[in-house]
Nucleic acid binder design. Structure first.
Lengths: 107, 107
DNA sequence: CAAGGTACTGTGTAATGCAAGGTATTAATT
DNA sequence: AATTAATACCTTGCATTACACAGTACCTTG
């Protein structure tokens, strides 16, 4: 998979998944990996960034298996950011697809 | 506009535009800028990379105004690369959009 | 202790932004 | 005619940023 396409999109995906329900980091990696190949070392720094920027809060919860899970929860700012990013993404895709098709017509 | 979304996509757009007809650098900047904001300093290094990788060849042609124009022309490898990148892009977009919608259903 | 689930860190890569520089041609000015 | 301005065009260098990859560390169960 083309690495470059992912830039900026992982943040969008993360916010979108968290908009559905709270999740812990390892779970996010697995969910996203179903569609887009990523590794843990990519998600955790991203989550820390989101927390530093005030888009998510975290809380710990015990797990039946393994270490306690750190759940991530969207703040109001995070929800807003998620919506905006999604809009930007959809607009961006339209523009790119426009370039892919057109380009000959005029001039 | 979200800078990160552009990563990898500019190459795709460039190859797509060149697939329609040969163009010179400055023209490419203007064409792409109609949809996606970029600057010359971004496109020229990209074009050089494409040339080094054997995806395009170049030839000079005089211009009525200003310096002679360096036209960029796709090689066979470039055409192939363009098609592949486009496929990858379309697939990628589908997957991302899938994540944006779904995410709750299963599990 | 072994194994696997979970969280985190550090270093490297690669694409883009931005700013600045450089060349060539035409038009305006002197 | 010579200088200058303006425009079109090409190039380079440094900073930024997100992601990959590999490695560390903890916890729990068997």
């Amino acid at each position: 998979m083309n690495i470059q396409f992912k830039k900026g999109v992982l943040e969008l995906c993360t916010l979108a998944l968290l908009a559905k329900k709270n999740r812990y980091g390892y779970e996010l990696v697995n969910e996203i990996s179903k569609n887009i190949s990523i590794s843990e070392g990519t998600i955790y720094p991203l989550l820390r960034r989101l927390k530093n920027d005030g888009y998510v809060t975290t809380y710990l919860e015990e797990s039946n298996e393994g270490a306690p899970r750190k759940y991530y929860q969207l703040t109001e700012a995070g929800k807003k950011m998620g919506k905006e990013l999604k809009e930007e993404w959809l607009t961006f895709v339209k523009k790119v697809n426009g370039l892919l098709k057109g380009g000959v017509k005029d001039e």
